[in-house]
Simulated assay, not measured.
Amino acid sequence: MEPAEDYLKEVTPLGEDDCFVIIHRPQKRGFEYPLHIHPEFELNYLEGAKGALRIVGDSMEEIGDKDLVMVAGGTKHAYSNHHCAAESVCEITIQFRADVFDSILNTRHFKSIRQMFEDASKGLVFSSDMLDRIIPELKKLTKDDSDSFHSFLHMVEILKILSSDNQMRLLSSENIVDGFSSSENEKLESILRFMHEKFRESIMLGEVSRSSGMSEASLTRFLKRRTGKTFIDTLNDIRISQAVCCLIDTSASITEICYNCGFNNVSNFNRIFKKRKGCTPTDYRQKYEKSRFKL
């Protein structure tokens, strides 16, 4: 195992005397960023990047036109253009240190924010209803630079609103922060990317091993060592992540979602979905519909 210093680490623009920084790129062509970590928390909003691939830990999802995620410091994440061919993508990124809140995070007033920060170690994606509510506030914050104190208070208010989203989703099944070399991280990203591109098909271990230049045995050991999962579990996690997005964002039937996400029969889909999410796809959709925000 290589030392942790070999891991790709982003140096953020957050200065020693900054509580937070805002990076606003209103017209960016595509969105590509390799697998990396940084010690700061990050809230990242993308608009117009439909088809881009978002990677957080062991989660890999193709995003829609609007996407808002939070990752804790040390959580591995990346973006790839994938199927995004947009000429103009709007990006708003807020980076901040959690220790700014150390003296108040354990108070009852910050209880929901504290829980959100803990969950962000696995990555959080916020619901479409929350997006409708919070995007105007994010865009307002990019223009609110005349008074840094009030800008900070506005940022805290945004965090409080986000923490009330009872439909935010955990992304990674576990926070995978380790000391593997950059080359191994790149290899893992390449394997996961290939599996995501092929997950709708009857993809086999041999096909993935050939694409990675590894034997089937080596690939199996590599995935187990890097993710703690077998090949089929890794593939099913990708398929279930996509199914969750379809259940929330589309009106497609359970059967349609089953086959569109690469499962070969509905009973098998239901069994695997329930094992990972604790309920059937039908129940998951019904729970989501019942708890939508009333804006």
Rank of each mutant, 00 (worst) to 15 (best):
Lys140Cys: 09
His154Lys: 09
Val156Cys: 05
His150Gly: 05
Asp144His: 10
Asp129His: 06
Met195Pro: 01
Ser173Asn: 13
Val125Leu: 04
Ile191Met: 04
Val156Tyr: 02
Lys140Arg: 13
Ser127Asp: 07
Asp129Pro: 02
Arg200Ile: 00
Met155Tyr: 03
Leu170Arg: 06
Ile203Lys: 00
Val177Arg: 07
Ser163Pro: 07
Phe126Asp: 02
Asp119Cys: 04
Val177Ile: 11
Leu188Ile: 06
Glu201Asn: 02
Ser182Arg: 09
Gly179Tyr: 13
Met168Ser: 10
Ser128Phe: 09
Lys143Trp: 14
Lys139Ala: 08
Lys187Asp: 09
Glu157Leu: 14
Ser212Ala: 15
Lys143Glu: 15
Asp119Pro: 02
Ser148Val: 13
Leu153Gly: 04
His150Glu: 15
Phe180Ser: 05
Glu197His: 04
Asp145Ser: 03
Ser121Glu: 15
Thr142Gly: 06
Lys160Thr: 08
Asp178Phe: 07
Arg193Trp: 12
Ser212Pro: 03
Met155Arg: 01
Ile176Asp: 06
Ser173Met: 15
Phe149Gly: 02
Leu188Asn: 02
Met155Leu: 12
Glu189Tyr: 14
Pro136Ser: 04
Arg133Leu: 14
Leu170Trp: 02
Lys187Leu: 15
Ser148Met: 14
Leu188Cys: 04
Ser148Lys: 10
Pro136Leu: 12
Ser212Lys: 09
Ser146Arg: 06
Asn175Leu: 13
Leu138Asp: 00
Glu157Lys: 15
Arg210Thr: 06
His154Thr: 12
Asp147Trp: 12
